[in-house]
């Protein structure tokens, strides 16, 4: 029984955390797709059109 409760908590906890993180990342769009996002300190700011 205790094992079941622990497994349940771990699975639901991880699922909740992963979901929140995924939605946040998706909203960032291109940073999520960037190859060096881990070591990147600049925010990939959208470029303002020059005209």
């Amino acid at each position: 029984m205790i094992a079941s409760i622990i497994i349940g908590i771990v699975i639901f906890g991880y699922a909740g955390w992963a979901l929140v993180r995924f939605i946040n990342k998706s909203k960032q769009g291109k940073c999520a797709a960037c190859g060096v996002k881990d070591s990147c300190s600049s925010q990939c700011s959208p470029i303002v059109k020059n005209k």
Binding site: A18, L19, F22
Partner: peptide
């Protein structure tokens, strides 16, 4: 990675 994170969470829900 997505399978391990989002798909995992989505599957649970």
């Amino acid at each position: 990675r997505k399978a391990g994170t989002f798909i995992f969470a989505g599957s649970v829900i």
